[in-house]
């Protein structure tokens, strides 16, 4: 566990030395700020629902950028050989990198707690939906990070990793949402579309914690981490 923690800490600190991470953070917070002030007017409902909805759209593009170098960079620079010969298992490497990226994601979201403080100053926020919204963001962030890590494990090119992860996340988040908004669907297609990210996340953003949705995000995250481990392992026998 200490090895995993060490790798996670190293990854996390490397983010704070990376200009790309800062750029992503600035863009994310500026976009969230714009979304927040749009609803921050006297007489408006004291809620963070729209900001939570916006966060997911932003994470679709920001997480792939943050995760693109996690393994792809190790492969392209050859440092993966050093890592693999060190006394660490593939699981520890993947889990460490995942936790490091998640740590940065939390750091990314942390400043938005200031919005909650402002809502408390100017109104009487209902804290339940805010807590569930943040829980949803953490779970969605974990899933997105796992997708980014998986794509990063598949290629040596960081650009390919970022684009493929963004495309995948776009496909499971934006497209089902768009389809549902534009077309009348058969009941079974409608049910299938509801299995994707946005519909499940919408519950968290409005203040409903459904154990089915929690299990979905955790299970999919674990599955992707497992597949990432298998991809990393495959370098030993390929």
């Amino acid at each position: 566990m200490s090895v995993t923690t060490t790798i996670a800490k190293r990854e996390l600190s490397s983010y704070f030395f990376s200009p790309i991470a800062y750029v992503a953070m600035i863009l994310f917070l500026a976009a969230c700020g714009v979304a927040f002030i749009d609803d921050f007017r006297p007489g408006q409902v004291v809620a963070m629902r729209s900001i939570f909805d916006w966060m997911v759209w932003l994470l679709v593009f920001i997480v792939p950028v943050l995760c693109m170098g996690l393994l792809a960079q190790e492969f392209s620079s050859g440092t993966v050989e050093t890592l693999m010969t060190a006394p660490v298992t593939d699981q520890q490497v993947v889990l460490g990198k995942f936790l490091g990226a998640m740590g940065f994601l939390l750091a990314l979201v942390l400043p938005t707690l200031l919005y909650v403080v402002l809502l408390a100053i100017y109104g009487r926020p209902d804290y339940g939906p805010i807590l569930s919204g943040y829980l949803g963001i953490v779970l969605v962030g974990a899933l997105f990070t796992a997708v980014g890590l998986f794509c990063s494990a598949l290629t040596r090119s960081q650009v390919v990793a970022a684009v493929s992860a963004a495309a995948f996340l776009f496909a499971v988040t934006v497209i089902p949402w768009w389809v549902r908004g534009k077309v009348i669907l058969d009941q079974w297609i409608s049910k299938a579309v509801d299995q994707f990210v946005q519909t499940r996340y919408a519950d968290f953003s409005k203040g409903v914690i459904d154990t089915g949705n929690v299990v979905f995000f955790i299970a999919c995250t674990v599955l992707l981490l497992f597949l990432t481990i298998k991809v990393v392992e495959s370098r030993r026998w390929r």
């Binding site: 209902d126 339940g128 939906p129 807590l131 569930s132 519950d203 203040g207 409903v208 914690i209 459904d210 154990t211 089915g212 949705n213 929690v214 299990v215 979905f216 299970a219 999919c220």
Partner: peptide, 16 residues
Amino acid sequence: VVAISQMTGRRLDTTS
């Protein structure tokens, strides 16, 4: 696991 959790899941409405 997802299907089972979906069928047996509980919903917690956190709004006051």
